[in-house]
Design a protein around this nucleic acid. Structure first.
Lengths: 367, 367
DNA sequence: CATTGGCACTCGCCGGGGGAGAGTGCCAAA
DNA sequence: TTTGGCACTCTCCCCCGGCGAGTGCCAATG
């Protein structure tokens, strides 16, 4: 029943209601729309149009004789067809540039992501989220085994871009420092330029060959590697959140129970990871409005997300989370821009390291 | 004027008011105290006593003819002299033991701290905080230089206990992989078994000697090390927070403005770091009630903190943050216990690594 | 002299009532 | 098709009065 195409007037009114509602937070009445409309239609006319829009599901009334408020469908129509993205101000761009330098001495990846999430929260006044680059795209620079007390071993994985991951594993037998350093050399030869998923395959492959050869040392090195890989799940992603305190100011979350649910959602990060990953898979920026979101915990929120890239590959995602009543025009631009700025900052950090491209491209086959 | 010693009755009444207020959250009247008091005093008598306590500053009335509520001073007296710590239940202890295994295969330090902060939040229903062990106590296991694209260098610091820190630095000149690995060996010889502050001293010392000798490689290795140390401030501590959503449920924070201030305080971690560090310096568990806290942002909160140890040295701190109206009896025990459990878990991970003791003891001289 | 019961008083909380204001739907006229 | 008019609805807010909890003071009591 919501399928009839909208007339120009319907669109104008819908847009007016949304724009007005976004700034005031109050249900919008026919009178207000009439005043703001350039072809000065009377309130009565607007009322009829609004009534149509309500019937079609784009607006609704909190109660008889209040103004209208956009529904999720209304917002959806707005962002898809009515919205005109508002460019960032020069000030904002300078601000971003300063925090994410594209050219000169760039900080390391973690730092860059931290700055990005702070920018998102600060510039949007909502909650900023950043999904860190996934290690599954990381190409091995060096794998190191170090002995710890109690016979345990520290495994350090370093990617060619400088990401570091480390885990503690317990080998079956005690290993001396010299053995470990010999093993370090062995695996670095074997795993040169491979990504984590590729290393997984390689370990299994070598282990089976190994029964024929009998290089004790390599066998034990492979054992350590596979123990490390067992701990290091590929889908284990890190997500940064900032600006959670911003939601407290928003009248849309006056209800405490709702706010609590929201904070819980932020605390267990795995749900955020899922949502951001979904965006990553789609490979383009995305808006999820209220009930459109698969996670029911976010049913009265809007997410604007966008993947960011490294060497043309989407490797992570970032976005803004806020109430449905948000300034879409501005925030869509903000999220898009930040994903672009971040991609550039990442690229500039590593320009001239051409070897890595092939490896990344080569592993595109995995799901 | 608050200096007169309290009679037994005063104490009983004060304790009764506090206990009652903590569970109900409502101002406590004379009638209620009278009912709960075992030597059945009449409400009138209690009223007189309460009036005394108010005059001495231990209680106050939100308004004429409401019950009494404890002041910060009242709470202080309570925790210092009236409170009897309530031991944890067997269930709780099992729960903790399961999460912080003392004996068997222990996870790495970061994981241990993560579990601890979750336990704090979960068992207290307030906000849990943990200050991570400071790297200044960390003894070098290995320092590694790895080349990154663009001529930058990744420096990885690994402590003997398995803590890992890494930074990206930009050396003055380009360095090849072979040079870097030679340099790695050089510094590991020089810095063997030193802590970060000691390494600082050592670098300066070697640099000045260096002008006389002319080992180009060592000079460049020292340059890299000092660039790393410049980024790695000693007071740069990591603090973990969990359970922030718990404060939303508490009626004491019904006021949104107050809540917002609170969340901001949690977001910029440096303030938390300062507070926890103060506790660390005192070397014993500590309770900060409302206005006693140096940071005005925490003026209507209570912090219960306790340092945790590694090899007799306090290396970090943990605690609970909540409203002043909290169950002190239980939470003090909880914080104390968790600091003990965590200390044990840390100790058991490294038993038998005797060499490290001397080094840690030797660096006690720094402030 | 500490303790107690009695009593008048003070507030905060809660629910009801009434008026103002904003907005609607419908209808008839332009 | 658009518009002005009109009756209607519903929320918000303020005011008011009663209720209940608790107090302070005082005189009586053991």
């Amino acid at each position: 029943m919501a399928s009839a195409p909208l007339s120009d007037r319907h669109r104008d009114v819908l847009a007016a209601v949304i724009v007005n509602y976004v700034v005031t937070g109050q249900p919008v009445g026919s009178r207000t729309v009439s005043r703001n409309s350039r072809d000065g239609l009377s309130p009565a006319t607007i009322r009829n149009t609004m009534s149509d829009l309500e019937e079609m599901g784009y607006l609704y009334q909190p109660h008889t004789s209040a103004g209208r408020v956009p529904t999720d469908l209304g917002y959806r129509y707005y962002v898809d067809r009515l919205m005109s993205e508002r460019p960032l101000s020069r000030r904002e761009i300078r601000h971003i540039r300063a925090a994410l330098p594209a050219e000169e001495e760039a900080p390391d990846v973690d730092d860059l992501l931290n700055r990005t999430v702070k920018l998102l929260a600060g510039l949007s006044s909502h909650v900023g989220v950043v999904l860190a680059p996934r290690f599954r795209h990381a190409v091995l620079k060096r794998l190191e085994f170090l002995s710890l007390p109690e016979g345990r071993v520290l495994v350090i994985f370093v990617s060619q871009t400088g990401m570091v991951d480390h885990r503690v594993v317990s080998p079956r037998e005690r290993l001396s420092d010299t053995e470990l350093s010999a093993m370090t050399n062995l695996v670095n030869e074997s795993f040169q330029d491979l990504t984590l998923p590729q290393i997984r395959v390689r370990v299994v492959q070598l282990m089976s060959e190994e029964k024929a050869l009998y290089d004790r040392l390599l066998a034990r090195a492979l054992d350590l590697s596979s123990r490390y890989l067992a701990q290091r799940a590929d889908d284990e992603d890190e997500v940064l959140v900032d600006g959670a305190s911003n939601v407290l100011g928003e009248p849309d979350f006056a209800d405490v129970a709702r706010m609590k649910a929201l904070f819980r959602a932020f605390e267990d990060k795995s749900r955020l990871v899922d949502l951001l990953n979904a965006c990553l898979a789609e490979d383009r920026s995305r808006i999820l409005i209220g009930s459109e979101c698969p996670d029911p915990g976010f049913s009265d929120l809007t997410l604007i997300t966008s993947p960011y890239r490294y060497r043309q590959q989407p490797v992570g995602a970032l976005g803004v989370i806020g109430p449905r009543r948000m300034d879409y025009d501005r925030l869509v631009t903000l999220v898009d821009s930040l994903s672009r700025f971040l991609s550039e900052a990442l690229a500039s950090r590593t320009r001239g390291a051409g070897e890595e491209t092939a490896a990344v491209a080569a592993e595109e086959d995995d799901a």
